[in-house]
Nucleic acid binder design. Structure first.
Lengths: 154, 154
DNA sequence: ATAGTTGCAAAGTGTTTGCGCTGAG
DNA sequence: CTCAGCGCAAACACTTTGCAACTAT
């Protein structure tokens, strides 16, 4: 459970300033309970502070990424998403029916694959953070098909 | 071994014309021995026919995709790549050191994951075609680090 | 004629950059 | 003072779209 305080520390340690914008951006991500796009962060922060610009969001996200505060996920939904970095490696199942995403434990599901690739090919897979799309059980039950034609939605 | 002929059949069956552009685009992909970007196809085809436009490439790629002639891969390297569609499902290992990519068999490596997700979560993963980035054995041997900072390169 | 196809130019996304102004150290 | 950080506008890379001309049937 990181608290607001941390951002100050982390930023100062890196010789950066904990500006209001940065604090707002971080809490916007925190308050979203998941992974958000830059655009979504922009909208959230604008409720508090109208003048924030998308460039600031992107610059801040890059900074946060470098500092290990957030991590990036590409859910293949057009734009990159960001979430608060956690110590435990994990991935996402993204339902193309309802858009929801689910936590996928690394050790149990992904590590075996990583090891297999390493053993069989000597390939050191970078499975830091990725997303598997598909249909969640609910959507399957309600008879949706994997109408995942990408582009367009939203 | 599909031959040039097939494109004619496939297109005609779909009520489309096997135009020179389309033939050239398909053989450009074939002749690339792997997965290519739209831009790369453009360059290849232009050697034969200077006036081809990138829009035609994209339109044709969409058409080919719909007809099942090519499949799309997002190697996360900026632009989408395309390759000749094969019957056997497979994926790619993409080395972030040398850029090379390697074939990854579906049944052996990915199907187990798919089944696990289905059993454990009832999640029907759409693991059609994806790419795992990392370092190939050669690059590991030659001491490269996973300097995969994405964006920017080229 | 009719419908499919093309080149060209323009528009669209999502993201990044240049720049001058501001404000903390 | 000095440099990080900001908002703004413009640039960027990749992809899509509108349109008028063209072409096989």
């Amino acid at each position: 459970m990181l608290k607001e305080m941390d951002i100050g520390e982390t930023l100062k340690d890196a010789g950066r300033r904990p500006t209001p914008q940065r604090v707002m951006i971080l809490s916007a991500i925190r308050g979203s309970g998941g992974h958000v796009t830059a655009e979504e962060i922009l909208r959230k922060v604008r409720k508090e502070y109208t003048f924030i610009d998308i460039a600031t969001i992107y610059r801040t996200l890059q900074l946060f990424k470098r500092l290990g505060l957030v991590s990036e996920i590409d859910l293949k939904q057009g734009s990159t998403r960001y979430e608060i970095a956690e110590k435990e490696k994990h991935h996402h199942l993204v339902c193309s029916g309802c858009g929801k995403s689910f936590y996928l434990d690394h050790k149990r599901f992904i590590e075996p694959l990583r090891l297999a690739l390493l053993n069989d090919f000597g390939f050191e897979a970078d499975l830091e953070h990725f997303a598997v799309s598909g249909l969640c059980s609910q959507c399957r039950a309600s008879g949706k098909t994997s109408s995942n034609d990408s582009k367009g939605g939203r």
